[in-house]
């Protein structure tokens, strides 16, 4: 049950972030003044990719709460670490970002660091 929840958390986190990124790239680049922010938020409600992404993150959050109710925090950490690597992989192949060795190195160091921080 625990490992199933970890799988759901990692998968839904990854899918959510990838959908959000794809959706937000279809909108104009965000500006920082209040009017533009309000406009951006209004557009998000008509952006099916971002709505699906937020839904996926909500599922990951509920799964995380369930996992925390049956085990301690450190058990949830592998899900975060897996997400970092999986998301970098999808950023390269689905979002077509230029993932250089620096970005792979960065994602790996962070994933390893996060595990070390909580275990």
């Amino acid at each position: 049950m625990r490992w199933l929840l970890i799988g759901i958390i990692a998968l839904c986190n990854t899918v959510g972030d990838v959908l959000n990124t794809a959706g937000m790239k279809r909108q104009d680049e965000a500006e920082l003044d209040p009017r533009s922010v309000a406009h951006m938020v209004a557009r998000i409600f008509r952006n099916p990719l971002v709505l699906a992404g937020l839904g996926s993150l909500a599922v990951a959050f509920i799964a995380l709460l369930s996992l925390l109710s049956i085990s301690n925090v450190s058990f949830a950490v592998p899900a975060t670490a897996i997400s970092y690597l999986l998301e970098t992989l999808l950023a390269k192949y689905v979002l077509k970002e230029k993932v250089t060795w620096r970005r792979w190195g960065a994602a790996s160091l962070v994933a390893f660091g996060v595990v070390l921080l909580s275990w």
Partner: peptide
């Protein structure tokens, strides 16, 4: 909201590691 705004301007493979500095600051 600001995370989504950032994703409209930057790559996911950039945003993920860079915003991980939050872990360090929380510690």
């Amino acid at each position: 909201i600001t995370d989504l705004a950032l994703l409209s301007r930057a790559d996911l493979s950039f945003v993920l590691p860079v915003t991980a500095s939050a872990y360090v600051l929380i510690a």
